[in-house]
Design a protein around this nucleic acid. Structure first.
Lengths: 201, 201
DNA sequence: CAAGTCTTTTGCCCATTATCAAAAAATGCA
DNA sequence: TGCATTTTTTGATAATGGGCAAAAGACTTG
């Protein structure tokens, strides 16, 4: 972990946030003192089960997953994937500052820019635009959850796979397929067969 | 639709909200002028696709569903069910006051107590406790969505069915099973077989 | 480069669900 | 009550995914 934030990375963050929350670069600049760059090795934990998620991270490189260990089968199930230009955060734990249900782990070496909960809260107080950011972040979390629910309701594993290829083309080069199959709610061999079916089209 | 709110119904609402948001009955009483009782016949719409959801409803009797029409198969898929002592609202549409993705319809004759969006917003402004209610409502919506996502990820249709029996024992007497199978993400005949399997245990 | 490890695919068989159609049961209504 | 409609169940078959084990392929790393 280091504090030096290269200009280009910081500009990427600025661009993403000003676009996301429709804020000016002056408003964004209020947050400048708070961002810290962090690096993770593959397998490192962004946040662990039972501990409170204290930071909101913006993914510069690499990919993370949130997973739960299924008591019955003792294996891991991926609930969320996060990759470049997305926010990595265990939302429920973060907004309520309560222990997290998930393990959140780097699936690859990764770098992020992160801001602490209390710093973010102070921005919410200081700035209307940041308050809006907070609301949009919450709504986004809700939307992601709903889209995922609807994908299970309306779509076959094959369609969910194709959607994921469209949404995160980047992760397929860097992340093992068993993480993908877990996210899709199917077994490794099933994903393998789906990919075979698709390639024959 | 009528305006006369019987005392007992109103007390049920008061009890539910004060418990939910940990507010005093004085704080709850601030909302008293705003609640209106509404009645629905089976098949009536609480809110229609493309129109903004303008009310938050507390279900006194009966049950509602939110559904989407699947373009591919042209049939309806239930995304949410709402029954007694729960809030019926199309959350995303309500909080952002944007057109709704869903149809929300009474599955049985039903009565609710409802409060309008702007009245609720004014309560949020006037009262810290109501602001807390708003936050908890949002978090609850998020949790419901997440639990539903996780149920698809971790559970078989049979387990989802058993969970629903526990969570909403009331609706099984009043609502056609095809609404339930749609909610569970399976076909009618499959639910029938699941029920047969279970009854033989 | 080669051995060892990790990841993905394949083969096999089984259990469950989808699909379509028809029968049976339940319900509503005259 | 009895007919018509709606809802649920059943039957038969096909498609899909699960589970297990083994093989094949990729990737480390000494």
């Amino acid at each position: 972990m280091s504090n030096a934030v290269p200009t280009t990375d910081f500009e990427r963050l600025a661009l993403a946030i000003t676009a996301f929350a429709n804020m000016t670069s002056e408003e964004f600049t209020l947050s400048a003192p708070y961002w810290v760059q962090r690096s993770y090795r593959k397998g490192d934990f962004y946040n662990e089960h039972r501990s409170v998620c204290k930071h909101l991270g913006f993914v510069l490189n690499g990919a993370f997953r949130s997973y739960i260990i299924d008591e019955k089968t003792a294996d891991e199930k991926n609930v969320f994937l996060y990759s470049g230009n997305q926010f990595v955060v265990s939302f429920k734990s973060f907004i309520r500052q309560i222990p997290c249900d998930y393990h959140t782990q780097a699936m690859t070496d990764a770098t992020i820019l992160s801001i602490g909960f209390f710093d973010l809260m102070s921005l919410y107080q200081k700035s209307h635009a940041w308050e809006r950011f907070g609301r949009l972040l919450a709504q986004e979390a809700f939307n992601v959850a709903m889209e995922r629910t609807e994908s299970f309701l309306f779509k076959s594993p094959e369609e969910r796979y194709l959607d994921l290829v469209n949404q995160h083309p980047d992760i397929f080069n860097t992340v093992p397929l068993y993480h993908i199959s877990s996210y899709l709610g199917i077994q490794g061999p099933s994903l393998s067969r789906i990919r075979k079916r698709i390639s024959g089209k």
